[in-house]
Design a binder for these strands. Structure first.
Lengths: 136, 136
DNA sequence: TTAAACTGATACTAAACTGGTATCAGAAGG
DNA sequence: CCTTCTGATACCAGTTTAGTATCAGTTTAA
């Protein structure tokens, strides 16, 4: 069970970096070099962050990217959902006839409970909270 | 993010079924038919449960499988670890030089905290607990 | 004594996902 | 007009997931 994929990971680290320099446009190249992330891979990730309005960009020679929302308001569950989709159940075996078989519902119910705990944990961690932790 | 794969799912449902009939050998065919699981797929899953000592088997015409451990003692995290391996971090980017970059440690620390919550939740759910839920 | 109903063991497959690379175009600034 | 940047895609290999297939051997009951 993998909670975080590489693209979510890189995206979060990038957002942290941008949040530390909220008024400058920083090039993707500079970030990928500094953080040891593959440049082309990060470019694709950054484009998604832009299309989801977490980051804004400026083209051209002094261009780059800049964080667009308050770091307190960006929760890591938002980033994960962009790259990994929603936290989801093992797809239900019985579709509509779901609850004919009680045994299956029991498992499903437990999974939903745990999923909701996981979602809450990831919703509780913002980019700001992460960068606060750096100083500590 | 998928918490449970199909093989874990089928394995848990199978263990629940076996736990409800702890003294009989039941054929894999009967279980796969009754629960709507693909037979050959379930056979491979069952063999893993046997090799991990959760289930015992009897060959031949009146043979089948039977649960081998107390349903209270089989936690769903055990089953998940058989089929999905351990709950794991996004692999560390910096290997040994991990903590030179404090920002990365912060993310890592949060992930570890959440992982431990997830592990505890899955460790708290036994096959017995699931079948108790059926009656309720 | 043999056919049917089982498990043991293993090999194969298609599709999706993951992580990464490459390319070509166009914008902006000096 | 050259360099540095983003926009937009297309490509790729390896792994994982979910499922199928096959052949061998064991047991039992008719």
């Amino acid at each position: 069970m993998k909670l975080l994929t590489k693209d979510s990971d890189y995206a979060i680290r990038t957002l942290m970096h941008l949040a530390l320099h909220p008024h400058e446009f920083i090039s993707t190249k500079q970030i990928s070099d500094g953080q040891g992330m593959p440049y082309q891979f990060l470019r694709r990730i950054v484009q998604k962050l832009i299309s989801h309005n977490l980051v804004e960009s400026k083209e051209g020679i002094r261009g780059g990217i800049k964080i667009k929302r308050e770091p307190e308001d960006i929760k890591i569950i938002d980033v994960m959902q962009i790259f990994q989709g929603p936290v989801q159940l093992s797809a239900c075996m019985f579709r509509n006839k779901l609850c004919e078989n009680r045994a299956n519902c029991v498992l499903r119910r437990e999974l939903q409970r745990i999923e909701s705990i996981v979602r809450n944990e990831f919703r509780d961690v913002s980019i700001q909270k992460l960068i606060n932790g750096i100083k500590g």
